[in-house]
Design a protein around this nucleic acid. Structure first.
Lengths: 248, 248
DNA sequence: AGTGCCAACTGGTCTATACCAAATGATTCA
DNA sequence: TGAATCATTTGGTATAGACCAGTTGGCACT
């Protein structure tokens, strides 16, 4: 009766033992990235537990960022994290492509909107001001990593939406509208992803992600772009260089 | 048969409907922060579902950062997020106290360690170099928000551990060792909390938190302190000011 | 008034089962 | 060759029970 023996000498939860065993497999490098993990039912039988316990173990892997779920397709080994340097005002797209990351951009939506109270405040415009709003899905190796929605003042960049948005918009605005990003404010927080976001990112609802809000200003200090990103939390990390404010 | 009627016209999962109902209660302001939420069994009976489904709804609240669990004490309404400005090199402690946040610092551990490979690299010292290592738990209103472990070069700050560590160490190092933080590198990522961290933070294992790693340098550009923080993700957000690098 | 104990909570873990819908893959038919 | 079909496998949701171990509050005894 090996099961009983285990329980006598190890009171860590069963699901956690299984989780640790699976984690070993991944971190050892036995399983390459994007490899399929055993299914809930297979794990349940292999470790002689109920499916719910096996599921728990697999979900814990996901919480640790070691695997990701593709709905009813199965679970897969996560690739290593991407790093996004937020203290440089280059866009993630430009940055990633420069360092050889295989990046795809998919335009989900592009439309004209009117500024709500929050957008108006951040962009220093009146409520109701027409804005271009476009949402794009960023993928690495064909796997979704984050969704970004950007808002720019339509009057300043009239025909922006007629350009191909599957590229760095920082570059687009620089080349065609002579507007260069100079300073910005960033806020990073963890939050649960919404249902629609979860669908695009290919993860189950009720998972947490990292939200990144950016206000971008030109050389005159005038804000011209608001960006809101929601990242798969396990696939990214954000770096910054900081400095004591010289004026105190 | 109201249950059937609901199911006919709303196919969102039952646990999600309950979650949304509970969320309403909180965001409406009907429930003050740190108020106890109904228990799993109470919710189960109130909504006529099994306990596991009620549990699921309550866990979703937690994932959204709207509540926190205190183990077998119950679940409670979360307070609003704290903001930590990472682009200023003032410590969170100094910053928080200046803006009137009720902050308590608890020293968990303080000891001498030898630098491992990673610490040695970041601090520009030899592997094995003696370091002061101290771990502190930061609380707001009596509720844990993050754990910080700092590593400083022992030779440079010989009797640091004899001071009261329940204060901003940035200030401590400035006052007693004439060392001022000038530049730094920060990395932010989401990750699952470890079992020991979960215990200190008062949350269940397998939850995700935000890790913040800092390298702090003096006015000469020499690194003298490594800080590693793990935050309750739902209780914080991190802001930064960014700027295009003038030298390109 | 204090103390210690016990019963009634709480969440944490786990089993065994069930049905659904999406995805997959093999088979069959045109 | 190509398209439609169907059984299998997948994760998602849900039920109804069970036992355990911390927490709490009241009750009885000092």
């Amino acid at each position: 009766m090996p099961d009983v023996a285990v329980k006598l000498f190890d009171d860590t939860p069963r699901f956690r033992q299984i989780f640790e065993a699976l984690r070993e497999e991944i971190t050892n490098g036995n399983l390459a990235k994007h490899t399929a993990l055993p299914s809930e039912r297979v794990v349940a039988e292999a470790y002689n537990v109920s499916r719910m316990t096996a599921r728990r173990a697999l979900e814990t892997l996901e919480a640790e960022g070691l695997s990701y779920s593709q709905g009813r397709k199965g679970r897969f080994v996560s690739p290593p994290r991407l790093t996004y340097d937020i203290s440089q005002m280059v866009s993630f797209a430009a940055d990633a492509q420069a360092s050889g990351v295989d990046l795809q951009i998919e335009v989900i939506k592009a439309e004209q909107q009117n500024a709500d109270a929050k957008l108006a405040r951040d962009l220093l415009v009146q409520i109701g001001e027409p804005l271009h709003a476009y949402t794009r899905l960023f993928k690495n190796d064909g796997h979704a990593i984050f969704i970004e929605t950007e808002f720019v003042i339509a009057a300043r960049f009239p025909d922006l939406l007629s350009y191909d948005l599957r590229q760095s918009t920082t570059q687009l605005l620089g080349e065609h509208f002579d507007t260069r990003a100079h300073t910005g404010d960033v806020v990073i927080r963890m939050r649960g992803v919404r249902v629609d976001e979860a669908k695009l990112l290919g993860l189950s609802a009720n998972t947490a992600g990292i939200e990144l809000e950016q206000v971008i200003r030109d050389t005159a200090g005038v804000p011209f772009c608001i960006g809101r990103q929601i990242w798969r939390g396990e696939l990214a990390e954000f770096s910054a260089r900081t400095m004591v404010n010289p004026e105190g």
